[in-house]
């Protein structure tokens, strides 16, 4: 990878499945040290994209390059059910040799208060997710890919997992990509967004920048001149419209507000579906 600031770069990435393209023409760059939300509905291609980036799937076309080593936690956080926590750590050690940081692993397990002698199948969903995260982090990856790390987790476990992850980002500068279909989970956690819909990248970039570039306007699409209307609800001259701003908006200030991350994502997903609800 030529640009040292880029941790993940996909170019023309595509994967053809029997029933069609699971992923098509995906190109994006994620800067080193960023935390990216990979968002999309179920079946949008999030898992496929992450597996390709993790080297577990070969793309049909294009390529994805990652800078440095890659850690991956698959959906459902697979772990060996009959193993104890200590045995899972030993698994990490023997399958990673010198890439494994045992001190760090034990520190993380301690912070998560996971009993070393507990069997994996006796752990709660949240504890299992944390153990899976420990295994991925203890390899000291440069890029960490997490597929739906927060699904089916109670709020406390969710906060614990995010905190562990964010501390790791602060400590090691690891680049993180988390997929989710619940955007609100990641508000305030992610600084980058990658929006997939039916295998195609709809939106990519820095969250603040994306939010800055979009406005919710209490006006119909006919009133908005050259600005790109993403989604309009209502008629030609009334209703609520989400626009991508390309210059000054010729609309009274009090009718304009900044969208939230979730609002933005949902607008794009709806727009692409041609459903103006």
């Amino acid at each position: 990878m030529s640009d040292p600031g880029v941790a993940v770069r996909a170019e023309g990435l595509g994967l053809r499945r029997r029933r069609g393209w699971a992923l098509r023409d995906c190109s994006f760059e994620l800067p080193a040290g960023s935390v990216t939300a990979l968002v999309g509905a179920n079946g949008a291609g999030k898992s496929t994209l992450l597996k390709i980036a993790a080297g577990l799937l070969r793309p049909s076309e294009g390529a994805v390059a990652t800078r440095g080593s890659v850690g991956f936690v698959a959906q459902d956080k697979p772990l060996y059910r009959g193993f104890t926590v200590a045995e899972m750590l030993r698994f990490g050690r023997v399958t990673n040799a010198e890439d494994w940081d045992d001190t760090y692993a034990r520190q993380l397990v301690g912070e998560a208060a996971l009993p070393l002698s507990a069997k994996v199948n006796r752990l709660s969903g949240g504890e299992r997710a944390r153990l899976a995260l420990v295994l991925a982090l203890a390899r000291r990856p440069d890029v960490l890919l997490l597929d739906e790390p927060l699904s089916e987790m109670d709020p406390v476990a969710r906060e614990d997992v995010l905190r562990t992850l964010m501390v790791a980002v602060a400590e090691t500068g690891v680049t993180v990509v988390l997929s989710t279909h619940v955007v609100s989970d990641l508000d305030g956690v992610c600084d980058h967004l990658l929006l997939l819909d039916r295998g195609v990248v709809q939106l990519a970039g820095e969250v603040e920048e994306l939010l800055d570039n979009h406005r919710v306007v209490l006006a119909g699409r006919g009133d908005l001149g050259d600005h790109q209307v993403i989604l309009g609800r209502g008629g030609e001259h009334r209703g609520t419209t989400l626009v991508r701003v390309t210059g000054e908006l010729d609309v009274p200030e009090e009718l304009v507000s900044a969208p939230g991350l979730e609002e933005l994502v949902i607008a794009y997903l709806r727009a692409n579906r041609g459903v103006a609800a």
Partner: peptide, 18 residues
């Protein structure tokens, strides 16, 4: 069945060796 091949194969060990 349990998806643990994804766990094993995303470690440093090579798939063939595994």
């Amino acid at each position: 069945e349990q998806g643990t091949h994804l766990l094993a194969l995303s470690q440093s060990v090579r798939p063939r060796r595994w």
